[in-house]
Measured scan of single mutants.
Amino acid sequence: MGFKLLSKLLVYLTASIMAIASPLAFSVDSSGEYPTVSEIPVGEVRLYQIADGVWSHIATQSFDGAVYPSNGLIVRDGDELLLIDTAWGAKNTAALLAEIEKQIGLPVTRAVSTHFHDDRVGGVDVLRAAGVATYASPSTRRLAEVEGNEIPTHSLEGLSSSGDAVRFGPVELFYPGAAHSTDNLIVYVPSASVLYGGCAIYELSRTSAGNVADADLAEWPTSIERIQQHYPEAQFVIPGHGLPGGLDLLKHTTNVVKAHTNRSVVE
């Protein structure tokens, strides 16, 4: 069995187990497998329904001669939608809004960016022009300005110390501490036991640490421990890039980060 097929099978099995364990909360999309990078042309966006009122959005972007996937989250909030992270750029984010209108038909009224990198804030200006209120932590807003990236308009308070959590509509926002970046936030959907790890969490097929220019490698494993301790009931975990899975993604990420750190020390 090929690795790609095995990865998709694991996603399907995880979703099936969740649907059985929580039949009222989960209505997993039966329309197909989780979209992969090879299936999404740059400039297009796919939506994948995880649970009743919960979707991931998947886009792709060219970077350094390669094409990478990027995940975000959409959560229903009454007759409105909360968006977590842009679709990595203005063109993708405009396509995301169009796809949401086509498939869901509810307005996106608020959006949260989970850290300051372009795959999370690139497209904020498109959201703002569409009347979406954009939010991020003060740290993310400051770092985005320093980096020359787009800056969300509103500040999220109460997320300055490791372990801080605040309720934001249908989700809980959690600051686990520094990891992929010093400002990275985690998003949890309690009604569906869905954990969105953003770039602080890796997919299972990833074996290298990737972009760690703004990471705190020493603190990252401790931050992941905080996530595990705060959300032990999480059933569906979405990484910032690639295929979702279960809580095993947290341990896998820790292993990859520690291996990278150990290699760096040896070198």
Score class of each variant (00 low, 15 high):
residue 259 A to L: 07
residue 30 S to C: 12
residue 49 Q to I: 02
residue 188 Y to N: 05
residue 113 S to D: 02
residue 230 H to G: 08
residue 179 A to D: 00
residue 73 L to D: 00
residue 202 Y to C: 04
residue 31 S to F: 01
residue 221 P to D: 08
residue 5 L to H: 15
residue 260 H to Q: 08
residue 162 S to H: 15
residue 80 E to F: 15
residue 226 R to T: 04
residue 109 T to D: 12
residue 136 A to T: 13
residue 243 L to A: 06
residue 15 A to M: 15
residue 23 P to Y: 06
residue 267 E to Y: 07
residue 90 A to G: 11
residue 58 I to W: 05
residue 32 G to C: 07
residue 208 S to K: 11
residue 180 H to Q: 00
residue 71 N to D: 06
residue 127 L to I: 06
residue 189 V to D: 12
residue 258 K to S: 13
residue 180 H to P: 00
residue 260 H to F: 04
residue 29 D to Q: 10
residue 180 H to N: 00
residue 145 E to H: 14
residue 114 T to G: 04
residue 217 L to W: 13
residue 182 T to D: 10
residue 193 S to C: 11
residue 259 A to S: 08
residue 19 A to H: 00
residue 164 D to N: 14
residue 219 E to L: 09
residue 135 Y to C: 02
residue 96 L to Q: 11
residue 250 L to S: 05
residue 54 V to N: 12
residue 75 V to A: 11
residue 167 R to E: 03
residue 161 S to R: 08
residue 141 R to K: 15
residue 135 Y to N: 06
residue 242 G to N: 03
residue 211 N to T: 07
residue 242 G to C: 02
residue 4 K to G: 03
residue 34 Y to L: 11
residue 176 P to D: 00
residue 20 I to M: 10
residue 174 F to N: 10
residue 251 K to D: 14
residue 261 T to C: 11
residue 253 T to S: 13
residue 69 P to R: 08
residue 72 G to L: 00
residue 105 G to L: 14
residue 155 S to V: 14
residue 71 N to M: 06
residue 26 F to R: 11
residue 204 L to M: 15
residue 124 V to L: 11
residue 181 S to F: 00
residue 7 S to P: 06
residue 84 I to Y: 03
residue 57 H to S: 13
residue 117 H to N: 00
residue 241 H to Q: 01
residue 162 S to P: 14
residue 95 A to I: 09
residue 99 E to T: 03
residue 191 S to T: 11
residue 213 A to T: 14
residue 223 S to G: 10
residue 195 L to S: 00
residue 185 L to V: 08
residue 134 T to P: 07
residue 218 A to C: 11
residue 171 V to W: 00
residue 20 I to S: 07
residue 231 Y to H: 07
residue 188 Y to E: 03
residue 127 L to V: 05
residue 114 T to W: 00
residue 99 E to G: 10
residue 264 S to I: 13
residue 261 T to M: 04
residue 125 D to T: 10
residue 177 G to A: 00
residue 234 A to C: 03
residue 97 L to K: 04
residue 176 P to N: 01
residue 10 L to K: 05
residue 72 G to T: 01
residue 93 T to W: 00
residue 29 D to M: 09
residue 112 V to M: 08
residue 28 V to E: 06
residue 127 L to P: 01
residue 250 L to I: 05
residue 169 G to F: 14
residue 8 K to E: 12
residue 88 W to E: 01
residue 155 S to H: 15
residue 216 D to M: 03
residue 107 P to H: 15
residue 230 H to W: 08
residue 200 A to G: 07
residue 3 F to A: 11
residue 44 E to G: 10
residue 10 L to N: 09
residue 52 D to W: 07
residue 248 D to S: 05
residue 175 Y to H: 03
residue 236 F to T: 08
residue 31 S to T: 15
residue 22 S to M: 10
residue 183 D to I: 00
residue 132 V to D: 01
residue 166 V to S: 08
residue 50 I to K: 10
residue 168 F to Y: 05
residue 95 A to P: 14
